[in-house]
Design a protein around this nucleic acid. Structure first.
Length: 107
DNA sequence: CCACTGACTACTT
DNA sequence: CAAGTAGCCAGTG
């Protein structure tokens, strides 16, 4: 799968995440056929979130934690998720068991 | 072209 | 899933 195709798919997938749900970097990459490309998903968000109006805040790491540093938008993401009904525990973590989401249609 | 870096993950303590 | 280590891949200088 060409790089650009993956990029388009990943963007579409992220854009399709419903409110109150989250996905992991690796999960997005894997769903698009490239399980090792978690970092590429991260890079996409970093590069395109300001252009594509994507719900980047619905993407967290595999532990259900926000990967951004406090100086990089951590608080913003947390607020956005909380405003959608996502609850954080004492460690700034969310329950992937409850909030992790996967699309039902194929790619 | 080589080395470093990063919104990551998997495997071991 | 806490902390350390290694693998991955593309962007950057």
């Amino acid at each position: 799968m060409p790089y650009q195709v993956f990029t388009e798919k990943a963007i579409a997938l992220i854009a399709s995440i419903p409110e109150g749900r989250v996905m992991t970097y690796g999960g997005i990459a894997a769903w698009c056929g490239l399980p090792r490309e978690a970092r590429r998903v991260a890079r996409l968000l970093s590069n395109l979130s300001h252009k594509h109006d994507l719900p980047w805040h619905r993407v967290v790491n595999r532990l259900g934690k926000i990967s951004l540093p406090e100086s990089g938008g951590y608080e913003l993401q947390k607020k956005l998720l909380e405003s959608e009904g996502v609850v954080f525990d004492g460690s700034g973590r969310i329950s992937l068991k409850r909030y992790l989401w996967a699309p039902d249609s194929s790619c």
